[in-house]
């Protein structure tokens, strides 16, 4: 496969995300400007300029009309996808979950009150997901805990403590019945999103920064590498900066793809499952279209 290298960022990529149809790919980095790209040809559609700090997480809505980004300048901002203009921003606080109604978002957002505030006591939240039917909220914590929250009441429903270290990333499977976590404790784990039951564990020998489940095959992809601060002391060959493909069920690694010069911070499957992207500490996003051999590859069992 011939990957497209998207070089729109000056610093390490923090997160990449496809929209629902997969024609657009959003990327954020530690510089202040999230980018949006056409995933097919790698053409940059635009940049969202306005943040004053590293952008840590991004998301796009179901219809690809609104784009949201949360950054180190203590704000989250909502943008119009088509024009790249900022609709409004709101200030966050020290580790609290805000749930805000943005269905009819306009300039009054900064004055609006959140419909629910969940103060987090104890370990901080490092990743977050909507549960099935948007009735619950899943949070991954710095101590490896996963908590399921009830949106209506703001109460903890369930807690699972399967990871021993910070949870870097959580991603849903296509039907939202399972989610995969990527943790600093060198493993990625697959959970049932309803009862937080641990289903599978994918073991590696380095911190896992991101993990994604293929929408069409029983595959998961893990991206990782050692901590960014240790990168300069190791060569690319030793650092193992490749994306690693595991079988979903058998927990066994079956393939690797090289390319990045630093740890991979975020991986995402295209919603059609025929390509995947990875964003790394080296500031590049790489869009890979799978070769036919990937689809023909049969797992021996």
């Amino acid at each position: 496969m011939k990957p497209l290298m998207l070089h729109g960022h000056e610093r390490a990529i923090t997160q990449i995300k496809y929209n629902r149809e997969g024609d657009l790919l959003f990327s954020s980095s530690k510089d202040n400007k999230p980018n949006v790209w056409y995933s097919l040809n790698g053409e940059r559609l635009g940049t969202f300029n306005g943040h004053q700090g590293a952008v840590w997480c991004i998301d796009v809505d179901w219809t690809t009309t609104r784009f949201m980004s949360g950054a180190g300048d203590n704000t989250f901002r909502i943008w119009d996808c088509e024009t790249g203009t900022e609709i409004d921003k709101a200030m966050g606080h020290n580790c609290e979950i805000f749930i805000m109604d943005v269905r009819n978002v306009d300039e009054s957002l900064s004055q609006a009150d959140p419909i629910l505030k969940i103060p987090i006591i104890g370990s901080r939240v490092s990743s977050m997901l909507w549960g099935a039917l948007d009735e619950t909220l899943l949070t991954g914590h710095e101590n490896g805990e996963i908590i399921q929250w009830d949106i209506k009441t703001g109460k903890k429903l369930q807690t699972a403590k399967e990871h021993e270290n910070l949870i870097n990333d959580m991603q849903m499977s296509k039907d939202s019945s399972m989610f995969i976590t990527a943790s600093k404790d060198h493993t990625a784990k697959l959970f049932d999103s309803d009862n937080l039951m641990l289903l599978k564990t994918y073991k590696t020998e380095r911190p896992v920064n991101s993990a994604a489940v293929s929408p069409i095959l029983e595959h998961v992809v893990l991206g990782g590498g050692q901590d960014a601060m240790d990168v300069t002391t190791t060569s690319a060959r030793v650092g193992k900066f490749d994306s690693r493909f595991f079988h979903l069920v058998f927990e066994e690694e079956f393939g690797r793809v090289k390319g990045h010069f630093g740890p991979i911070n975020s991986v995402a499957f295209h919603p059609d499952g025929k390509s995947y992207s990875s964003g790394g500490e080296d500031g590049y996003v790489r869009v890979h279209n799978f070769d036919p051999s990937y689809f023909e590859y049969g797992f021996d069992y």
Binding site: M1, K2, H7, K33, G255
Partner: peptide, 28 residues
């Protein structure tokens, strides 16, 4: 196009989109 890409022509801008070398999945 908007933001920093506002002045880009239609089609990928070679400054930001680079076709890289072939890579292959190594099957383990």
């Amino acid at each position: 196009k908007f933001g920093e890409s506002a002045t880009d022509k239609p089609g990928p801008n070679p400054a930001t989109t680079i076709a890289s070398e072939d890579v292959y999945m190594q099957y383990v």
